[in-house]
């Protein structure tokens, strides 16, 4: 068992159209490293040049924003869920 990363509609095209990807790692950063190793195109869409999560994307570990934990260093355990939630503006 590993950590499940849920992929939003807007980014699914970079991960072979999967809704979620299971990865291994002890921190959010390791989980993302593992994800971006398999799907390199995803990386520039998630992180800026300095490796910071882009401002229009939030990352939640279980149900809280990693900004308010230890950010990318937040530790994760088997069975945790990482949710990527991008800003969307549609209303029509």
């Amino acid at each position: 068992m590993g950590v499940v990363i849920e992929i939003p509609s807007a980014l699914k095209q970079y991960v072979n159209n999967q809704d979620e990807v299971e990865v291994q790692g002890n921190s959010v950063e390791e989980a993302f490293d593992s994800l971006c190793k398999d799907f390199a195109e995803l990386k520039p869409n998630l992180f800026d040049e300095n490796g910071k999560v882009r401002n229009f994307i939030n990352v939640y570990l279980n149900d809280d924003d990693i900004r308010y934990a230890d950010g990318m260093n937040s530790s994760v355990q088997d069975g945790d869920c990482i949710q990527i939630v991008p800003s969307v503006a549609g209303g029509r």
Partner: peptide, 14 residues
């Protein structure tokens, strides 16, 4: 709608 689920995450005042 595709997974037919609702999830909730916390939004804090920044």
């Amino acid at each position: 709608a595709m997974k037919m689920n609702f999830k909730e995450v916390r939004v804090r005042k920044d």
